[in-house]
């Protein structure tokens, strides 16, 4: 009580200084600083001069940060603002070389800045930074015009690789495990690390070409800071953009190495149906009814599919969820 009286009476001091005498006040200070840190930088890579309420950011910074003999409160807050943006932009820069090549550097940086401004990191690990990128691009396709479909395909493909790298792997089912179950009753789970993608562009080949033209950059792990915005040398030539073509991809890992495998359209339908909870029989029927191919021995074909997928360890126990 005393406190609020004192602060309300000190009208003369334009910049009321934040105090931290309770967990609630600690929260208030941290919320304020986090808001400042999350605000996008100016085109000159500095902190925005105006605060949200129209005050100068200098004034705002002075309410909680002390200046020293070399730096103002604004300067000191700006260090954290810049470090945050350099770090998260750098992370997506590394995670999305394909999307970067599709959009071009400048457009890519603008897009991920808008994405992160709307969706700041919601996970303790930078690994998940791109988790909402697909949704963002669907909601705001202007960032990926004039090639929204290609860009979206690439974003999904690159996110699938994050999943394939270190998502969970459940005990794989062997043919013996399912020998006695009737196909109309048998349900199979798919490994959490496996993604099934129906795409409109041959982004797999394009990405291989992009990676070849770029030297791999290893992300640093635990450093406290970054000194600069990620920039390419600007020298590398972008490979020719992929042509429109419907493809089906499984993005997965085997012996902990990452792979992408093209699937027949029918195989894609079967796997997608299995993942949705269909029995093996239902899934195969869906696959067959989707086919446009003729002269195929489907008995043999489906047997080969399942042998291959089982050998890759893609099946696990089905669980409803």
């Amino acid at each position: 009580m005393k406190r609020s009286k004192r602060t309300s009476s000190s009208k003369s001091s334009k910049t009321r200084r934040l105090e931290v005498r309770s967990r609630a006040e600690l929260k208030a200070l941290q919320s304020l600083m986090a808001t400042a840190v999350f605000r996008p930088l100016t085109p000159e890579e500095g902190m925005q001069p105006r605060w949200i309420d129209g005050r100068t950011t200098s004034e705002l910074a002075s309410t909680f940060i002390k200046p020293n003999d070399r730096l103002t409160a604004f300067d000191r807050l700006e260090i954290y603002n810049r470090v945050y943006w350099f770090r998260v932009l750098d992370c997506l820069y590394d995670d999305y070389p394909g999307l970067r090549a599709v959009l071009g550097e400048r457009k890519f940086m603008k897009m991920i800045t808008a994405y992160l401004a709307k969706y700041p990191s919601a996970s303790f690990t930078l690994r998940n930074l791109g988790s909402r990128l697909e949704q963002f691009l669907r909601d705001e396709p202007r960032w990926i015009a004039p090639r929204p479909e290609l860009a979206l395909d690439m974003a999904r493909f690159e996110w699938a690789q994050v999943i394939a790298f270190d998502d969970e792997s459940k005990p794989a089912i062997t043919p013996d495990d399912i020998l006695d179950t009737r196909p109309d009753k048998l349900r199979l789970g798919l490994q959490p690390y496996l993604s099934l993608l129906q795409l409109n562009y041959e982004v797999d080949e394009f990405l291989v070409a992009v990676k070849k033209s770029e030297s791999a950059v290893l992300r640093s792990e635990a450093s406290n800071t970054f000194e600069a915005m990620p920039h390419s040398s600007g020298r590398e030539k972008r490979p020719r953009l992929p042509k429109r073509k419907r493809i089906h991809l499984a993005v997965h890992r085997h012996d902990n190495d990452l792979y992408y495998k093209r699937l027949d359209p029918e195989g894609f339908v079967i796997l997608t149906a299995l993942r949705a909870g269909a029995s093996v029989e239902e899934a195969c029927l869906q696959g067959l009814s989707s086919t446009k191919r003729t002269g195929v021995d489907w008995n043999e074909e489906i047997k080969a599919y399942f042998n291959n997928w089982t050998a890759l360890g893609w099946f696990c126990r089905f669980s409803k969820k």
Partner: peptide, 25 residues
């Protein structure tokens, strides 16, 4: 240090205000 507020993460090691209340929390 601190680094997140309400489930939003800065991925940075942000400094503390050196107060007794902050030490307690």
């Amino acid at each position: 240090c601190w680094g997140s507020v309400d489930g939003r993460y800065t991925h940075d090691l942000l400094p503390m205000p050196y107060t007794f209340a902050a030490a307690k929390a």
